[in-house]
Amino acid sequence: MAELLQFTITGISVGMVYALIALGFALIWKSSSVANLALGQIVLVSSWFTYSMLVQAELPLWLAFPLVIVFALFLGWVIERFALRPLIAQPILSLITVTLGIGYFIEGVITFIWPWSVDALPRLFPKEVIHIGQAVVSQEYLWVVVICLVIFVLLTLFFRYHRMGIAMRATADDQLAVQACGIPVTRVFSTSWMFACVVAAIGGILISSISGITHGLVETGLKSFSVVILGGLDSFLGAIVAGPIIGLLESLGGGYLTPFTWAGVKDIIPFVVIIIVMVIKPYGLFGEVRIERI
């Protein structure tokens, strides 16, 4: 029983981080229909940047975090301005491939600057464990859940009440109409990229403060696509609901299935989920089913 509780809490908190990263994906997809496959690399590079600020430059937390946020904003702006802007209205194949190219490039930059490829972030959260019933849960998991929830709420409020948020939703709905209304579509695009990078960076910091910075973070980014797929590509609610589901499946599956299958089954559960969702319900739980006309 304690084991189950343990798996559940771990699963939900890891799933929350997936959901956060997935949110970064949905942000871009909603406003500009670009599928950002470089998400994993963005997560990784922001974690390394945090590492540089905290460990190599030995900055205090209150200075390092704003710097990381600025870095993520800048990263999003650069990617949008120099790689995606020239490709507006290109076929989806080019849009997907260009993000793959960006991801590849970022990966090169990472090995260039941080060649040792594995390291640990200093602990950001108190170390003491909490006892819930019989389960022993380390406090950082709970912190992760809380931070993720706060960001969800902030983003939801932003999209509901802020001018830019409303403009983003409008752009997602109909780009031409938005342009006719005088909303600068390109600025909406670059804002959505900047937001997405910040969200991904926060997700990266949270996950690497728990399990260290490794190249596996790229895979974490790819795994968060299962969240996007399960929740529906254009749905924030979907991401928030599907994140914990994927996290739970991963941690419960990893906990209970490993004796029956080969080791490391945990790592491919999100990918299996992708295939299953694709076959059964390709537009996800909350995704909008696109009706096409010729």
Binding site: V98, I102, G108, I110, T111
Partner: peptide, 17 residues
């Protein structure tokens, strides 16, 4: 190790653009 992926990524992006 870093220069190869960097260059290939750049080549792909530049060709697409």
């Amino acid at each position: 190790t870093g220069v190869t992926p960097m260059l290939f990524g750049l080549v792909i992006v530049l060709f697409l653009i």
